[in-house]
Design a protein around this nucleic acid. Sequence first.
DNA 1: CGAATGACTCCTT
DNA 2: CAAGGAGCCATTC
Length: 105
Amino acid sequence: MKSNEPSNEERVWQVVALIPSGQVSTYGEIARMAGLERRARQVGGIMSRLPQGTSLPWHRVINASGRISLPVGSHGHTEQRRRLQEEGVVFINGCASLRRYRWHP
DNA sequence: CGAATGACTCCTT
DNA sequence: CAAGGAGCCATTC
């Protein structure tokens, strides 16, 4: 009988779900927390294929530069920024200015 | 099945 | 700070 091993996708979902409102994390950090160190790209791929209408706080995931990775002007970018601002995240010149979730300098 | 792709990141110049 | 390049690897062609 097979044990239900969580797929990478499921592990990433689980980690993203833990990001508190008003805070953000990065693809690389998500990868690390999901046991996928150095696979930030894979996390991005998983995010891009999230089911429509997901309850995951996908908008709290940004890149290591503190910017939204979706193309500027795209629907996704606009929505992500709107949701973050709604949670109190401040943007300065396209950069999210707020402490990261589990970010260590 | 090999090649291209991508919501990435780090290091060097 | 910007640009170039290497590393990474599941998914899609």
